[in-house]
């Protein structure tokens, strides 16, 4: 416990001193903490600018943090610690998403909190990781963070329109739309064909008669019965479907109110 507290202090110091060279005078407006120094000055400035715009536009703080090492922590654990430091030291808000990269272990963690949990669902974080991992695996830090910010922007926009990115809203949504359009086109064609055939039927009126209803008297029933024969009962086991977050979407939040996506790159 003591060790962790010390490390927290160290982290705080790193955050204050290590990034002191950054060009931002207003510390509350900082979103990029490149302790591992993998970004150039211009790249750093660009990402700060973009993160600022995202916050101004969508009200969610988007952080980029790089560390040399995890210092014995799990990636998610360190990221949570960093969150608390950002809150206390930089006045970070409740609604955040943070991408942490530990260069030595080549581990990453995406942390979401508050509104970030709504915007960045479990499935959304999976998709986000897929987009930037190929860049990070190739040591393309600029490309990876660009993808991260692009994805954040995309998901924030979708959430702002009331439909956070989740299962069924990307590929599935596209697929569903394609199927819907195909069905709509087919049904429209069938309706059009039926209307056309109805009009076409007016063109052909010379037909052989197949029935003689017009000349029939009343049907006389001499004998009739309706007798019970047998009864079939079929029972099909069909338990209620469990609410599986992996398949039904949403965000899994821990007791601290955080959601994570971690892994290697």
């Amino acid at each position: 416990m003591m060790t962790k507290k010390i490390i927290s202090i160290v982290i705080a110091v790193i955050l204050v001193l290590g990034i002191s060279t950054a060009a931002f005078a207003n510390t509350s407006g900082r979103y990029v903490f490149d302790d591992a120094s993998i970004l150039s000055y211009h790249e750093n400035a660009e990402f700060e600018g973009r993160a600022n715009i995202l916050y101004q536009t969508w009200g969610c703080e988007v952080y980029i943090i790089t560390f040399e090492s995890l210092m014995g922590y799990e990636a998610w654990e360190l990221n949570e610690l960093l969150y608390y430091e950002l809150v206390s030291e930089y006045g970070a808000g409740e609604d955040v998403i943070m991408l942490l990269l530990a260069m030595e272990e080549r581990q990453y963690d995406i942390l979401a909190h508050g509104y970030g949990n709504t915007v960045f669902t479990d499935y959304g974080k999976d998709v986000m990781a897929e987009r930037f991992l190929d860049n990070f695996a190739a040591d393309d830090w600029y490309g990876g963070f660009s993808d991260y910010l692009d994805t954040c922007e995309e998901f924030l926009k979708m959430a702002a329109y009331g439909e956070p990115f989740d299962i069924g809203s990307e590929g599935d949504s596209f697929g569903s739309n394609v199927i819907g359009v195909i069905i709509a086109v087919l049904v429209s064609c069938v309706i059009a064909l039926l209307v056309c055939l109805a009009f076409r039927a007016q063109m052909k009126t010379a037909r052989l008669a197949t029935e003689a209803h017009k000349y029939a008297k009343n049907l006389v029933l001499k004998n009739q019965y309706d007798r019970f024969s047998h009864r079939d009962i079929k029972r099909v086991y069909n338990p209620p479907q469990e609410n599986n977050s992996g398949s039904s979407g949403g965000t899994t939040v821990n007791s601290g109110g955080f959601s994570h996506k971690s892994g290697g790159f």
Binding site: N223, Q224, S229, I233
Partner: peptide, 27 residues
């Protein structure tokens, strides 16, 4: 629905009809 089961009951009947139908001047 009965618990975790979907139940379908089909009741069958043997139906018989016997009769006649007259026609007048089918052309």
């Amino acid at each position: 629905r009965d618990g975790d089961y979907d139940v379908t009951e089909t009741t069958y009947f043997n139906v018989m009809r016997e009769g006649s139908l007259g026609f007048e001047m089918i052309p």
